[in-house]
Structures are given as C-alpha cells and as structure tokens.
Design a protein around this nucleic acid. Structure first.
Lengths: 396, 396
DNA sequence: TTTCTTTCATTGACGATGGAAAAGAATCCC
DNA sequence: GGGATTCTTTTCCATCGTCAATGAAAGAAA
C-alpha cells in the first residue's frame, strides 16, 4: 500500500512538462518538497519514472537531478474509428507514436467494425512485442454520444456509425484482453492536446476541429466538458445565420452546413457549376484561382470565425486551437476566420490566443491512447505498484 | 485548531439543502457518518449550525435529528450597483432577505457612488442592530470586469459605470469596516442561484438574464466560469445573425442588439412610428395588441432562444434559467424562445431543462450577499471558530 | 586544501483528516 | 422487557502532507 493520491498529480505534471527536478515538481504541483520525494519514490520503484540523464543547469548549489517518465515502461494502443477506416497507433507511456496502422472498413455495423479493430490491435500488439514492452491499455475514440461512466464503455448513439447502445469497451476488452477506455473522438483529441499539445498547463481552452464535420472540445476549470446529457462542444450545430443553408439537423445556418467539407463541396459545385465531388477537388479549384470557389472558402472561414467568437465570448478560454483535416485549406479560411473573430470577440476576450495545429487522424488515435494512459495512471497510482517484471498480462 | 476542511462542504450542503440529518449529510457529501459528526461539532459550537426542530420522518429505528443553519448567527449586506441606483439587502446566514433599501445615484463616478453605497450599508447595519445580530460581510456586485483574485477587489473595467481600475473592496472596506467581496453582477447572481435557487445541486447550468443588457452566468463542473481574461458569459455579444442590426460593440446581430431593452424600444419605435422611449411603453403597446410591437418581441424571443441554443449545444448544461427585468415581457417572448431553442438544440442537448425565474434587482443584491457568505464560510471553516458573543468587530 | 555558501533532496516527527468498526442511543414492534 | 432497526458517536487506525532538521553535492572563498 505505497499508494499516494499525490502520485497522480506528480506523474501527470512530469508527463506533460517533460523532465523536471523534484524542486520544480514541487512548485508546479503546489506540494512540499518532502511530499514530492515521497510521491516519486513508489513511481520510480514501479518503473514509471526514472532519473536523469541531464541536470538542471544550476550554477550554484547541489545540482538537481531530473525526473522523467520512462517512456518504455508501458505501451498503449489508441484507435480512431471513422466512417470508412480505422486508424490505430501504438504509443509509449509518453504518448509518443511508436507505430501506426490503418485498415479500411467494409461496413459500419459493429459486426463489421470490431473484427477490423481487433485485427489492428493484434498487429500493434505484435509490434509492441518487438519492442519487448507490454501494452497496458487500449483507447477507442468514436464520434457521438459515449457514456464514459458506464463500466462497459457504452456508445449510446453515434449518428455517423449508426450505432445505438453498443457496449464497446466490454466487447473490445473481451476480444483483445486489454483494459479498454472508450471516449468521444473530439474529447479524446482534446485530452491529448491538454496533456501533450497546445493545451498543456492551461486551465481552459477550446479545440475546434474542421473537416467532415465541425467539432469542438472544451476544457474548463482544467477538465474536459462532457455535457449533462453526453452532448457538448457541438459547435457544428451552433447556428450563425438564421437565413443560412439548411442543415441535416433541421436547423438553418449551422456552422457545419456552411464550413464542413460536404457543405463546401456542395457550395463549390453550385457556385461554379462544375462536377466537384470531393474536398480535394474543391480545394484544387480554389487554389487554381476560381473566384466562386474562393468565395465559398472565404464564407466558410467567416462562419468558423464567428463560431469561435461565440465560444470565446461565452467561455473566455485562454486559447483556441483550430485543427482538423479541413486545415489543409487554412490559407483560404484564414482571412475569414481572423476578420470574423476579431469582429465577434467582445472586450478582453479578444486577447484569447488563437492558434492552428495540423492534427492528422493519427493524432486522434493518439488522443484515444491518451485517454487509455489517463485511466492507466489512475489505477497505477491508486493501487499497489508492482515492478514491470512481475506484470505481464492484462492490467487490473 | 478545530479546523476541518470538510467543514466547508458540510456547511454548504446544509445551507443549500435545508435541514438534513447527519446521515443525509454523509450521503450528499460522500463523507462517512463519523466524519460528519466531527465536522458538525465545531460548526455547532461556533453557532453556525443548530439542531432541530423537527425530525426526519422515520418509522423505524432511532429518530434522526435535523441539522440546520442558524440563520441568525450572522448577517450580511449585499449591494447591487446599477447605472442609476444602488440596491442593498440585509440577509441572514441562510441568505434570506431581512431588509432592503435603495437609493438613486447622482453620478456614476466612484466619488459619487461610494458615499451612497456607504450610506445604504450604514442604514442596513442599523437594521441589523435592531435584530441584535452582527453583520459579518459585505458583498458588492457591479457589472464589468472584476478581478476577484486581487486582494483589493479590483474593478478592472466597468463600461456601464465607466470605471477603470477601481480598488472597490479596499475602499468600501475602509469606509464600512466590513470584510468586502466584490464580484461581477451576473456571476454573483449565478452564485445565488447555485446555492439557493434553481441551480442547487447541479453540476452545470446557465443563467440567462434579459433586460437592459443580455448576460449569462455559467456553472461548469460545479464552479462559476470566470474566463481567462475576466470575460465570460457574454451572451449579449454572441452574434446570431450576420445581417442583424449593428451593436455598439462594433459587430452585427448581437443578441443584445435585438433583444435587450434599448434595442426593443428602438425597434418598436421604428416599426410603429410612435414615440416610445421606455421598455414599459413598448410593452404596453405590445400588450395592447399592436402587431408591429408584438413582432419585435417575437423576434427578440427568437434571438434569445437561438442564443440559448448555442449555449446548450456548446456546454450541454443540465438546466438553463432565464431571468432578468425583461422577464416582465416573457409572455411575448415565450413562443419565440421555445421554438428557436427547439430548432437549435442538437441531439440529447435538447433534453436540457429550460426554466424561467423572476429575479428582481433585490435578487442581484442577494447574489452579492451570497458571495459574501461564501467567503465568510471559507474563512470561518478554515480558522478557529469563535462564539458569536466573542466576536463583534470586523471579521478577519 | 579547507571551509563556507548555496541549493537540492531526504528523513523523521507531528498534526490533520477521514474511514472502519464497534459501541451507544433512541425509537418501534412484539 | 427483549429484539430489531436506524441514527449517531466513539475509538482506534491508516494515510497524507507539512515543518524543520539533516544530509548531499556542487562552486566560491580563504
């Protein structure tokens, strides 16, 4: 019972803020130096943390030793399920991608998806064997409404996959023999950004994803917002224009009905009269200088900027991160986003830092791995640690 | 040093959930029965909590004794500063209003406001003397950007009062001899609702105020959202229509430019051609059946409903409370709000409970008192309690 | 070289906190 | 009166984290 509640916070700090001296850990966590020493010890004994190499570059006094996460102490698999393929990554304990794989889907029904998912996980488990490191958790990210609290990791409703009440964690756990964490995809990506990306150390930020849909992950008071009914961050269905185009949700002028890939493709087709059917074609046309197409992108940028303005006015986050596949067209969006945001942001909320970050699908899968790491840390720091030699099979 | 960190949570639970048995307190707080006994004892010794009267209506077993807050153990003054008057209330420890007073302002400069504020506080202190109870804190609610963290309770910028960098808590504390808490007015009202109103027990809710302006207080993860730069809940400047009327903030189609009192008055004047200058006149005209005026209200209701839809889609709160002076016209808003919200809410977010609550300005002042009680509890439960006889002067 | 200074890290004593389990208390039912 | 039942309190006891003293490892100064 060398358990320490402070263990989790110490580990998390070291994980996201790279190697730190114990004194720095004390400063960041607000714990005393003594408490840090006591919290670090069992984590090092368990093999999750290691000392050095390198030293805190002090001129005077006893040199500090750096504490870092032993990236190779445990591996994790993260999986992102999209409409037509599954992307999986193998990460180390620092959530760095060590291997990646993807497979196309032949259907969206759970019976079609799960064999592919299992196959990918098996592939990455073999990779992990090559490294000689045990995989200690599997994170799965799916779009839609996920009940994180339920033990079976229930996917309550995923419109994109047309799933209802699928106990995904239970099924995947049985199939793979791994402890499974299931999360909404945008929230998983948000967790990854909060721990390892542009949201590190921030008490509040928003992650806006632009692509096939428009999503938004929100962190408030240092925690990801889940919504009382499982729905939150539905930026795509925030309406910004009562006279805008109709959205499949039944409303008009949703951001998604203006700025998501399908909306852009349709608008470009209508405006230019050309048989454009994919985002790539639409983008090509705009890049080639087609006025109509460029205007469609500009309008989409405006819509995104206005939507971000709404988020910022409501929540006043420290930062907004814009990402998603749609970022490929960011040069075409940029002016619209900037202008509309500047017009919409009220008062000091305009000081909010707006940045872009390209996050490919592998990054979403990495987000899923991050949620797996998160729950692994929770169990590892609250249970009696065991050495890495002792443990080999399924964790917990 | 009979200090207990659990004291604060126990006290808060008893405060907002009325009289409870110790067993119920244990259930609500998640503490063990033993811990509750230990936490309650010093609070009762200090006079903040009392037992009975009444019993938990059990049929079998030892009857439970109810624990309640001794409302008369301490009084508080809450003040709401508006553009042309100050409203003040005297409340007991349960935040029930025992006396109220208001005075008009002769100017908005701090030099004009503070004497009036001091005069009102003095008046209510005399009232409190009549009850024989000491006033233990003063809460002041002002619109605008308030730095809660600063020791002097700095009002950084209040556009409405045209204040900049006014160390209000420091000044008011010196003038009144009371410990002072300064908060943004909407956030203060939100705290009051969270503790004593429609937000009791909820982890997340939104409070929308409609009146001279459109405001919004947000509670996420059980805490009021303050915004990284002091700005949050600016629902009034969420734009819902790019072609809407211009707003003084420089943007178009802000909710406030459509649905706040000045906007409604102007619109009614323009539509009907009548010399309407006050919200009351506009309301009268609409109530009299004037088509144009009614349409203005309907459009305002639509705007509010759309804005609430945005909040709900982004945060997925458990409940939305609509309030403010503008509620007087709620019958005219209602259809618009309901329809627009129903159209805007996405998926299960539509399950969000939307309620209305009339909250007059006294209620805002009560919110200010609630923030004072909040900080009083914080200091009272973390410091050595003293009996109410011993203490008489300024607290802490 | 020796000693001082500085800073980091560890240890041990101690207090605060809260839980488990047993005991006590108060009521109803038989 | 003797259970049965439920609420409350007491009595330990484990955990957690701070304080203050100590140790450790360097550079600086004598």
């Amino acid at each position: 019972m060398t358990s320490l509640a402070s263990g989790e916070s110490v580990f998390t700090i070291v994980l996201s803020h790279g190697p730190l001296t114990r004194a720095q850990i004390a400063g960041r966590t607000g714990l005393s130096a003594a408490a840090v020493t006591k919290a670090v010890r069992p984590l090092m004994a368990a093999g999750y943390l290691v000392e050095g190499p390198g030293e805190g570059s002090r001129a005077l006094g006893r040199p500090a030793t750096l504490v870092r996460v032993d990236a190779g102490a445990a591996f994790f698999v993260g999986v992102k399920v999209t409409g037509d393929e599954i992307i999986a990554v193998l990460t180390d304990l620092c959530c760095r991608v060590r291997a990646a794989a993807r497979l196309p889907l032949t259907g969206r029904a759970p019976e079609r998806v799960l064999p592919v998912l299992t196959e990918l996980v098996r592939e990455l488990l073999t990779e992990a064997d090559g490294f000689g490191v045990a995989v200690r958790g599997l994170g799965i990210a799916v779009s839609g409404d996920v009940d994180v609290d339920s033990a079976e990791g229930m996917v309550r409703y995923s419109p994109f996959l047309e799933w209802r009440e699928v106990p995904l964690a239970g099924i995947a756990g049985t199939a793979t023999g791994l402890p499974v964490t299931v999360e909404n995809d945008v929230r998983a990506l948000t967790v990854a950004e909060q721990w390892f990306g542009a949201g590190v150390g921030l008490d509040s930020f928003a992650l806006v994803t632009v692509g096939a849909g428009i999503g938004c992950g929100l962190v408030v008071h240092g925690r990801v917002v889940s919504g009382a009914h499982g729905v939150a961050g539905e930026l795509g269905h925030v309406s910004i224009d009562p006279d805008g185009p109709p959205c499949y949700c039944g409303n008009r002028g949703c951001v998604e009905a203006v700025a998501a890939d399908p909306a852009i493709v349709r608008a470009v087709r209508e405006v230019t009269g050309r048989p454009v059917t994919t985002p790539a074609e639409a983008l090509e046309l705009a890049r080639a200088g087609d006025r109509g197409a460029r205007q469609v992108y500009a309008a989409a940028g405006q819509a995104i900027g206005r939507a971000i303005g709404s988020v910022v006015n409501l929540l006043g986050p420290e930062r907004v991160v814009i990402s998603g596949e749609g970022l490929a067209a960011y040069d075409l969006f940029a002016d619209g986003i900037r202008d509309a945001f500047a017009a919409a942001a009220f008062g000091t909320a305009a000081q909010c830092d707006v940045v872009t970050r390209p996050l490919p699908f592998e990054e979403w899968a990495r987000g899923a791995a991050a949620t797996a790491i998160q729950s692994f840390i929770g169990s590892a720091t609250s249970a009696t640690p065991v050495t890495s030699k002792e443990q080999s099979g399924v964790h917990q």
